[in-house]
Design a protein around this nucleic acid. Sequence first.
DNA 1: ACAGGTGGGGAAAACGTATTCCGGATTGTG
DNA 2: CACAATCCGGAATACGTTTTCCCCACCTGT
Lengths: 341, 341
Amino acid sequence: MPHPARPTVTLREVAAAAGVSVATASRVLGGSSRTVGGENARRVLEAAAALRYTVDVSARAMRRKSDAIALVADDLTTPSIAQVVAAMERRARAVDAFVTVSATRGDPARQLETVRTLCAFRPRALVITSSWTATTAYGARLAEELFAYERRGGRVVTYGDLDTPFDAIGVDDHGSARLVGEHLAATGHRRIVVLGGTRDRTFAAARVRGFTEGLGGGDVRVVDCEVSREGGYAATARLIAAGLGETGALVAVNDLVAIGALSACRAAGVDVPGRLSVTGFDDIPLAADVTPRLTTVAIPFAEIGARCIQLALTPGRAPERQRVTGTLVVRDSTSMRSGVI
Amino acid sequence: MPHPARPTVTLREVAAAAGVSVATASRVLGGSSRTVGGENARRVLEAAAALRYTVDVSARAMRRKSDAIALVADDLTTPSIAQVVAAMERRARAVDAFVTVSATRGDPARQLETVRTLCAFRPRALVITSSWTATTAYGARLAEELFAYERRGGRVVTYGDLDTPFDAIGVDDHGSARLVGEHLAATGHRRIVVLGGTRDRTFAAARVRGFTEGLGGGDVRVVDCEVSREGGYAATARLIAAGLGETGALVAVNDLVAIGALSACRAAGVDVPGRLSVTGFDDIPLAADVTPRLTTVAIPFAEIGARCIQLALTPGRAPERQRVTGTLVVRDSTSMRSGVI
DNA sequence: ACAGGTGGGGAAAACGTATTCCGGATTGTG
DNA sequence: CACAATCCGGAATACGTTTTCCCCACCTGT
């Protein structure tokens, strides 16, 4: 028995079975640049198949550049994140890399710890979809850690904020949100309430600006709320209880918030879109399943995931910024406000 | 520079900085059973922190038992799977293991290939949430591969089917579905149509039996459909076009199918639950967000994920079977059928 | 004072693979 | 036919860590 901890078939055994040296076997099985004789190659492949040999990636990683891509996310159950992660996994598989995921639940302390843990894999790249800012104490230490990782030859890709010193791919929150504002303006809405999430989320601030600009004047009121279904529900319930006044549309920072808002409207008997239009942002699959089907902005999450991997795998460039803009999807939760047009 | 492929700070450097041997440094940093002198331990920890040392898991894996748990799933964007995966990740983290995920899109060929790929990590355990049967050609080869992996000291945990020769954790599809049938019977439903998925999915067959038994007589018609939102929509649309007759309830094999059914009902102007009750299965988060809110069976996915990891990490037992039963969640998509009670 | 035990330190041998040499054979060129 | 160039196989080394083995110093009970 070779070693108690890993009783597995090794390259040495394959080589022995094929009657060649380990070097030759490695060259055949490892996709080396060196050529090996046809007969020997055949026998190695045969022996490997017969013995069910699979390479040990740990051992391989000690000589070769690793194929690992480490991924840190906030929460894998968030639909948009799940789509991005799934796309990354697909793309990585296509290029023979693999991803390990870790969820941080948005906790900065866990983010830092997670990055340190993942660095233990010596991954080729680190993709961070967690939102983070370098302004907090943890954020600064995280940035420091990431720089150290880059100095050691790694590549950092961030999804979310664009103003990071690394490769960044992000949604054009401002431009995409503008589309919503313009749509509402074009359908005669003048007074809207924005369920704007919390101010510390940078994407929320950019979207609120976009909504406002797109509307181009009119009366915009911004209400803070937790970025979740529950947050949207609670904020909307409060709003309705206080009286909607002349508010004609509820603009949510997020599909989840919008869906919460729809629930609250239904519970309070407010007709959507008859009395109130509601819009979302993201176009998660769920958006087409609620009633009324949600008008929102579709973000190409799958493409984002694929691009993250793409960036992660092309090293030796200056950090690059890519910005993707969403497309407006008009469904049933918005309607024309009469009396204006 | 130690090696071009991994320019990183090694244990040797930490040991040198601390003025001790690598053996001592390893004992301090690696959590060895052997004790080291207080002074030396302090200096090693200090040096490690100063140099930002992180252990190289690849190198460590060559001597120690690996901490990796490999996870193969069908599709990470499926809400129920996402919940299970997230729970696994949490639980694994709590015990210092880590999870690598791979999606197979339900393709048996990819399942086999994925298992082989993941075995390259020499993981401590392999968790398979993909549904698979040993009856197909690929299934048989997969089983063979998994047995080989177990012989090499690995542990296989399956989530889904219970009749596997490995550790298995599964939903009591039959018993849980019974709850739905009983609820419908208690609310006066006599004639139902089951949107039963495809017959090759074993869980579907068990649920259909459960629904039928729970109803305890009455008229049950089973309609095949793809297990997805679209499948539910299409089947329901066909059903409505052909005329509902005296059918009082639509029993979907799945929340997603049920949500598709709801969409089709809405599109065709069929009142739910006034004219037709609709039920689901799983209680994905979405189920509470559609209109009407879906009556369904809640499956404790988070607990399932945690238990999978638990099983994966306690080796050296006979294979164990755990079965979890769901709990009925009555919401708004079912109503009493008058004239019977 | 001495034998036996104990606790802790270091040298060195693994672990499985990729790669760098090196040497022998074969081929191409004059 | 001589010589260089090319090709291919194998021995050996390196990767970073854990662990075994050995040794030394110190303690303790007689």
